[in-house]
Design a protein around this nucleic acid. Structure first.
Lengths: 320, 320
DNA sequence: CACGTTTAGTGAAACGTTTCGATAAACGAT
DNA sequence: ATCGTTTATCGAAACGTTTCACTAAACGTG
């Protein structure tokens, strides 16, 4: 592997001169700089990232911890938002999964990270922040000088959703919940309970889910077992709603007639499945972009405040 | 940041002893090893990745270059396959985009990569391979000792697709092509042309596409302009087929009646849109898994051969 | 007990950069 | 001609590991 040393030798200068020249320091004359650059190119020199980051204590890489599992089609637009923001900077993005890559933060493989991944506990993230990692969390509330937060307005989302079902005249309500560890799931559920409590004469029931399609199908099964009259179901994410579609398509129960369904997230699929899935929408692109802006600020020690992403109701055929 | 040096001082041993102990060398007694580990934990020591990889010339990270753009829902199952395979090893996965992260390979940020990304030219990849990077390419044919190849059987896929349409009695055929740089697109197109050439009395026409939904919609527009009688369309990927659905839903033309559509890839969405999209299927999980196995072999200098992934036809309602 | 051998630990170099402080030459001003 | 100042370059230390070559003590063997 050709190093700065080889260039120095060939150019008949010191390695420090080479380093300065390659980094465009004004200390070196244009002539020597040009000559050194020439030789570097000639030798196919590429800098060694490990050596540089060892010395500079930075990697110019930020991570996005998103994928505790790689299935689902939730992350596309979010990543796009992150990437678009990063494109005008000299930072690069890597996408990693909390399932394994826990070392990236403490070992300083990356300068910072955006986290939406239950694979990390609050304690773990705080530990990393204590060690100096800069983090933007998308799925929890953490107070720490090295941590910023950009979260969804889950509370409003749930309220919009429940009110919509009630407006439509539904009085028999199911909620399919999310995993216990998920902050979003919990916030959404709390808001549902609060909204429901304000009304009398409604039948309200919770079914345990875990944000996966399969758990949505299971919930549908339970609903079908208990079926007496038309019901409305609020799935705490779209993925489960789709699982419910899957299951119901094997029965005679019709969505928008016997079972009315609303989801949360407005993933791409919701506008393609039939009937189209009513859901709670928010800009994933903006979410990613805002998180990135804040992470960059955190890294450069600029002041930064926590943010909330607005949500809105999308009425579609799955609720009549 | 606490280093091996701090531990050595506190333990009253040399730094080499600490290094050996932490790495579990048998040169060090169990007693000292235990004591050193204890102190390391106490001081919250974490190794510095840059220093280690500088010295060891390896990072234990492999990359997946997949995302020239982050939209689309193609990559989920592929990543799952890669990840599942990696889980039993000590390698970690990062997902990166060829749009920016070109330095990761030459600068040895990663030990190797799986590449399915037109953001890299053949020449560029060869250059990296020459510099010592280990690569598995999924979207091109490259002969190099450091490069292995796992590709789809596009040729069979196209043949299956065309034959299916002809079997169904269609004689007016459109093909919506892919981007010129895409190897898969070209292979598919070549095979289509070859298959079509074997039949007389069929009307065959190509429309330029680029694998995006938008280009599928545009193609649909053109088809509608020229419409005289029912036509069959082979979209060289599902994404464009979906774009075509989008467009046609704004017209009175019906899929499976006026316009018959078959895609390629069998992405998740194809079985949800109505009517379900006929397409060419292959195991993305296996694709990722095989690529990973081969990459690991390449990295450990084991012999490895190129592979092809089988495809099969999925008949669905979009073609009658 | 004297010998070679094993064991447990040490010291120092090396990996490829960056950067501080030093130095020598060139320059401008008096 | 002399003095300070700027300019271009250099030397060396430092970042945090790993690992080779070495040593001294402990051990087993005849």
């Amino acid at each position: 592997m050709v190093s700065i040393k080889d260039i120095a030798k060939k150019a008949g200068v010191s390695i420090s001169t080479v380093s300065y020249a390659l980094n465009g320091s004004s200390k070196i004359t244009e002539a020597t700089t040009a000559r050194i650059r020439e030789i570097a190119k000639e030798l196919n020199y590429v800098p060694n990232a490990a050596a540089r980051s060892l010395k500079k204590r930075e990697t110019k890489i930020i991570g996005a911890f998103l994928m505790s599992d790689y299935s689902g089609n939730f992350f596309g637009p979010l990543l796009q938002g992150i990437n678009d923001t990063l494109n005008s900077t000299d930072y690069e993005l890597i996408v990693c999964s909390g399932i394994k890559s826990h070392r990236f933060l403490p070992e300083q493989v990356i300068d910072g990270a955006i986290v939406l991944d239950w694979g990390f506990s609050d304690e773990e993230l705080i530990k990393y922040a204590d060690l100096g990692s800069k983090l933007v969390v998308l799925d929890r509330e953490l107070e720490h000088p090295n941590i910023n937060r950009v979260i969804l307005d889950n509370t409003t989302g749930s309220a919009l959703s429940i009110n919509y079902l009630l407006e439509k005249g539904h009085r028999k309500l199911y909620v399919v919940t999310g995993p216990d560890i998920s902050y979003d799931a919990n916030q959404r559920l709390q808001a549902v309970r609060k909204a429901v409590k304000q009304y009398d004469h409604i039948h309200y029931q919770e079914i345990k889910g875990d944000f996966s399609k399969l758990s949505g199908a299971r919930a549908a099964d339970q609903i079908v077992q208990e079926y007496k009259e038309p019901v409305a179901v609020f799935c705490l994410n779209d993925e489960m709603a789709i699982g419910m579609y899957d299951y119901l398509s094997t029965t005679t129960y019709q969505i928008g007639k016997h079972v009315h369904i609303i989801g949360f997230d407005n993933i791409e699929m919701s506008q393609y499945i039939m009937p189209n899935l009513a859901t709670i929408d928010y800009s994933k692109h903006k979410w990613g972009a805002l998180a990135t802006v804040n992470l960059l600020k955190l890294i450069s020690n600029e002041p930064v405040v926590n943010e909330t992403i607005d949500v809105s109701l999308i009425k579609r055929g799955s609720v009549q």
